[in-house]
Design a protein around this nucleic acid. Structure first.
Lengths: 106, 106
DNA sequence: ATGTTATTTCCATTATTCTGGAAATATGGA
DNA sequence: TCCATATTTCCAGAATAATGGAAATAACAT
């Protein structure tokens, strides 16, 4: 439960949610921190604070690449989060919307 | 986006998440505030604060019934939230787990 | 009206989170 | 080596959220 609350809190902040979405869009290659700060127009200290927060909860990973630190979305925790919400917070009814996306057959 | 951040923030707090889950379990009839406070062992002011927070975001509704105020989960916003996460934060892959639960633990 | 129970509002205190400048650290290049 | 660039850490101030006692409001019963 602590994990779930932490993941929710990590995303419950506009700057972090925007950063996370950028990284989802960017795909597995991810983006260097500076690129994210540019996109979000954040001073470096603020950016670092939020990226560290996302990384702490495991929603995001980082790897060093030369002078750059590359961040990328880690979907495992997001899967867990969506799974939790679907199973525990939707009262049995279909909570995920019927989008035209990948249908999952169980 | 503000709506999504608000919903996430509402659930990103242990007390509120627990209250919300209780209400999901309780179904459409919901539960009187006092019953929730009893279950969660909260002083009335604290309980009221958190329930009001959930209601403000639309995750929960309340209705007066005699001397009691009955709270119940409103799934519309939860659907929206899960939908948003699935569509915007999962990078195209299936985010909801394919585990089909026949039994929901109480 | 008075009493009892349920819930909320008021308010102050404490705790947590956010913000960003300045300094520190890290890496690569000349 | 020294310099430029990328990112983080340090730190302190500002903003926001959580907590709960006490008083207020609401609803019903006698």
């Amino acid at each position: 439960m602590t994990q779930i609350v932490d993941a929710l809190a990590a995303l419950a902040q506009e700057t972090r949610l925007r950063a996370y979405r950028l990284l989802v869009e960017a795909g597995p290659e991810g983006l260097p921190a500076g690129r994210i700060g540019e996109e979000l127009e954040l001073p470096p200290a603020t950016l670092s604070f939020h990226l560290a927060h996302l990384a702490r909860t495991g929603l995001v990973r980082s790897r060093q690449e030369g002078r750059f630190v590359i961040y990328s979305a880690d979907f495992r925790n997001m899967n867990q989060l969506v799974g939790y919400l679907t199973e525990n917070c939707c009262g049995g009814r279909a909570c995920a919307p019927s989008t035209r996306r990948t249908r999952v057959r169980a």
